[in-house]
Computed example of a mutant assay.
Amino acid sequence: MNDRVAIITGAGGALGRATALRLGQDGFAVAVLGRASEELDESARLLDEAGVPVRTLEVDLRDAEAIEAAITTTDRDFGPVEALVNNAAIYPSTPFLDIPLAEYEDVVTVNQRAYFYAAQVAARPMVERRSGAIVNVGSITFHGGWSNLASYVSTKGAAVGLTRALARELGEYGVRVNAVSPGAFPTKAEEIQGDSAEYTEFVLTRQSLKRRGTNAELAAVVSFLVGPDSAFVTGQTINVDGGWIME
């Protein structure tokens, strides 16, 4: 058993991997959760090479029973889950009038229902121990609106709403819940934007800081929100976007 464990969903992606490595550096044992993939295996390998106790949880977030089993057994057998980072998301780009209901429901299942259920399962032992932190990954698209991403944007708004509701309800048990809203970080999501140079120009004209952020910089904010320096912070959404959205 490890002293404290962090679970990161979508840990095969760029932001999830950076977060996993940072929390491992902070002293957490890390459970990387996501669909079976070479990317998830690579995240686990990098953690292992860094000397971080790691557990791989191959889970399709559409499967609620699998989510429950993965989190429950991790808490019981790997160590107390002190931090959950709901990071996984899908983001099909489709004009609103053309979005099939099945596509919308799939996005809601992965980006919204899975966040809710993973938080619920992880929070139960946190409440018993009177300790824990949950971070939901939102998006600045919720604050600014975005064309062709209505399903994704609506679920990211739900992540902020869930954060506030859980912070209010779980605070009396010592469980903190916050959100981060990333801006334009270098991830696979950029593929839907087309030309990379053109997109970079688009980003820099809107950011206050005239450079692209790094995945490690997003991970550092998550580290703060699950660590002791944010012990009196809950219910907040921090935009990590180089000064793009200011609210």
Rank of each mutant, 00 (worst) to 15 (best):
M1P: 13
D3Q: 14
I8K: 05
I8V: 15
I8G: 03
G12I: 08
A14T: 14
G16R: 09
T19D: 10
D26T: 02
G27K: 08
F28V: 09
A36K: 14
A36T: 14
S37Y: 13
E38N: 12
S43A: 15
A44K: 09
R45E: 15
L46T: 09
L46D: 13
A50E: 13
A50Y: 11
A50K: 13
V52D: 13
T56A: 13
T56I: 13
E58G: 00
D60R: 08
L61Q: 04
R62H: 11
R62P: 00
E65V: 12
E65L: 09
E68R: 14
A69L: 10
A69D: 14
A70E: 03
I71T: 02
T74G: 07
D75L: 02
D77N: 12
G79P: 07
L84N: 04
N86M: 01
N86P: 07
A88D: 11
A89P: 14
A89V: 04
Y91D: 14
P92M: 08
T94N: 06
T94Q: 10
P100W: 03
L101A: 11
A102F: 02
E103H: 03
T109G: 00
N111Q: 06
N111R: 02
Q112D: 05
R113F: 00
R124N: 05
R124E: 15
P125Y: 08
P125C: 03
V127A: 06
R130G: 04
G132L: 06
I134Y: 03
V135I: 06
N136Y: 04
N136P: 12
V137Y: 04
G138P: 02
S139K: 04
S139P: 05
I140G: 05
T141F: 10
T141G: 01
H143Y: 15
H143C: 00
G144M: 15
W146S: 12
N148A: 12
A150C: 08
A150K: 02
S151C: 00
V153E: 01
V153L: 06
S154M: 13
A158D: 01
A159N: 15
A159P: 08
V160Q: 10
V160Y: 05
G161T: 13
G161I: 11
T163D: 03
R164D: 00
R168W: 08
E172L: 07
V175M: 02
R176K: 11
V177W: 03
T187S: 08
E191T: 11
I192W: 07
G194R: 09
D195S: 06
T200M: 08
E201N: 13
E201F: 01
L204G: 09
T205G: 13
T205N: 13
Q207T: 15
K210M: 06
R212M: 14
G213E: 10
N215Y: 02
N215M: 04
A216R: 14
E217V: 06
A220M: 00
S223T: 10
S223W: 08
L225T: 11
V226G: 09
D229H: 12
S230W: 09
V233G: 06
I238M: 08
N239E: 14
N239G: 05
D241L: 03
G242L: 04
G243A: 10
I245A: 07
